[in-house]
Amino acid sequence: MVAAGLWEPFTPPAALRRREALGWLGYVQAVGPRVPAVDARSGHVPVLTVPGFLTGDWSMIPLARHLRRAGHATFTSGMALNSGCTEMLVELLERRLEEVVEEAGRPVALVGQSRGGTLCRMVAVRRPELLAGVVTLASPLLHQLPTTQALLNQVQLMARLNVCGWPWLLTPDCLTGGCAERTSALLGSPWPADLPFVSMYSRQDAVVDWHACLDPAAEHIEVGSTHNGMGTDRHVQRLLTATLKSWRT
């Protein structure tokens, strides 16, 4: 793992857990009028969005709408559900990044929420030449599972279901085997020189231990959002567009 030893599960206060559940209500913004596409070859840096654990590209719709209104072309990751083997998802995201850069004709920004941001960091150290920068939203960057015992139990159940014939779920190897070792080493790789990297985190996060978001290579921006509501929070969206504005390519 990136951090030495095991990252101890934490138990968030009941008030934070209730607030976290309400954070899901922000995704009603995924329903609404379409925002026109933006020309990827002009204007602000194009953005490839990557969803969090157990969600898909649909969860990034509110954020992508905001980005297009601000002048950014947006692209989806192709993940119907971010639930599979970590190594396979890294490979998928890298191939998708190559496609988007070819279409855009220039480097793009990766914006990932939760586990999506963890995957973004892994891809960035492999293919920095394709990137204008990376922004992670409530993403564990110092360890892959700095979370609650309840979520750890769900992850372990998913690994058992994979063995029972559910191949779209992460594998036991992703938790304690070679996949875990390789991806944790990749996550802890030195950050590419001169590549912008911003980690937004919240002390109100009741899913990921916010300390694990504080990658020394990143610029840290504290916000007041919940974990689940990070991508739909208006303040986070404004901070994100302000950050990307300086990343012209």
Rank of each mutant, 00 (worst) to 15 (best):
L137N: 08
H143K: 00
R203G: 06
L240V: 15
T241F: 02
S139Q: 08
V125W: 05
D215F: 04
A4E: 01
R96P: 00
A150T: 07
S83H: 07
Y201V: 07
P51S: 06
V155I: 07
N228T: 14
V50T: 06
T183R: 08
A218L: 09
T171K: 12
H72F: 09
T148H: 05
Q156K: 11
P196G: 11
T241Q: 03
R121G: 09
H235F: 05
V155T: 04
K245N: 15
T49I: 10
S202E: 01
V38K: 06
T232V: 15
M200W: 04
K245Y: 11
T176Q: 06
G165K: 06
T249V: 09
G52E: 00
A193E: 13
G178C: 04
A242N: 02
C85G: 12
G71T: 13
P190C: 15
R96H: 05
R34E: 12
T136L: 04
S83Q: 09
H211M: 02
L93V: 12
L145E: 00
W58I: 13
L244T: 09
A21Y: 11
V100T: 12
E103R: 14
N153W: 13
S114H: 02
L119V: 13
F10S: 00
V101H: 09
L81H: 10
V135A: 13
P36K: 09
V198W: 01
L141S: 02
P192T: 14
E98L: 14
A4P: 00
A185K: 11
Y201H: 02
E129Y: 05
H44R: 08
S202L: 06
A109G: 12
